[in-house]
Design a protein around this nucleic acid. Structure first.
Lengths: 201, 201
DNA sequence: TACGGTGTTGACCGTCGGTCAATAAGCACC
DNA sequence: GGTGCTTATTGACCGACGGTCAACACCGTA
């Protein structure tokens, strides 16, 4: 007589579909540009169903990006066999590569990252953890306060420089990487307590 | 018979009142924490009257902070008679002083600064103008791209370091100032095109 | 005391994130 | 091929948001 007005899907299948489409949408639009209604319409379901699978917009956002976060974590994971500075260089290279490949998504993230309180907290947490990783790598015996301030600021520097890089694209990736490295080392020297590193041959 | 249900005020008087109370509210709460309804209730008027005096929430926000922006501009205005680095030092000192005196307001600004698209654009414009001022002071003949990237990143560094400073308060203002100066100079040296400065005696 | 200009308001709009009882898809069984 | 059951899915609703508008009422003036 009449065809069904909606299609019933297996829970896991539906969930996977929502996560996939969500990742597409959230990497191509800012967080605050997308309403749950728009997302649902885009996917072809009702907003209520979206809320049936995810408790809130923020939770949905986080889950869609968890695959990305994992990719970032893996690609920037430092190799503990390398000396500290080379670990940093490699991580930075990987990070900049990811940013370059997905500049639009990165810009949207950083901007909406700060565009919404919950997302801001999320990014701040990532920054805090990254700072910790860097500090414990460079100051195994414990980092002085000024070094912490310097690294914390440097992470902001990195985002600012990356946004500028994406916008203008007038320097090479290697140049940016060396600039960032130089700034980090320069800042730590400026604290008066530079890390003790094995001499570069 | 019955007392008036509202008080009629002179336009200028009302406007001044709204700006004053608005500044109080916006420096003690984040942009997204305050609704136009709350503001109106707080002042004791209707939301519609708020919109009679200001075209939008964003415009109201900007106008309430214009006095602040002016104060910032005046206090950080560099003295053109001083050498470039001392201009920077003095501006930085003034800036950090303002931040220290109004740390809550600063944190709210930077956070809500980024909390809403329009405000983010506003802060980015301030950053852009500041970068321009610094670059033209250090590179009168024109700044190379890497220097622009470095200064742009450094302004983010400054905000990041200031937030960290406010949060922890574990270093002195002079230390932070010197750290910031050192990082800026260090970054410019790291670009490979340091500014040509008169030698410090 | 009546007038009128204008400062001020309540009621309304569309959209937001979020909730809930009611509905219907589609499999299992007869 | 019908019938029932599980449960995936939905329309309708909520309070709050930024924003708009015609109508109202305060108060100086004549």
């Amino acid at each position: 007589m009449s065809e069904p007005s909606y299609r019933r899907m297996d829970v896991d299948e539906r969930r996977a579909q929502l996560l996939e489409r969500g990742a597409e949408l959230f990497t191509s639009h800012r967080y605050d540009e997308l309403s749950m209604n728009k997302i649902a319409t885009e996917v072809g379901i009702s907003k209520a169903l979206l809320y049936h699978y995810f408790p809130s917009k923020q939770a949905f956002f986080e889950e869609t990006l968890s695959a990305w976060a994992e990719r970032l974590r893996v690609r920037t994971e430092p190799d503990p066999n390398l000396p500290p500075v080379e670990q940093l260089t490699a991580s930075l290279d990987a990070f900049l590569g990811l940013v370059e490949e997905n500049s639009g998504a990165y810009r949207n993230l950083i901007q909406s990252a700060t565009a919404v309180a919950e997302i801001r907290d999320l990014v701040e947490e990532v920054r805090r953890a990254t700072a910790e990783r860097i500090l414990s790598g460079l100051y195994p015996a414990g980092a002085p306060p000024k070094a912490r301030t310097a690294v914390s600021g440097w992470l902001w520097f990195m985002d600012g420089a990356c946004l500028n890089w994406i916008e203008h694209r007038d320097i090479e990736r290697e140049e940016l990487r060396d600039l960032l490295l130089g700034v980090l080392m320069g800042s730590l020297i400026a604290t008066g307590s530079p890390p003790e590193l094995p001499q570069v041959s």
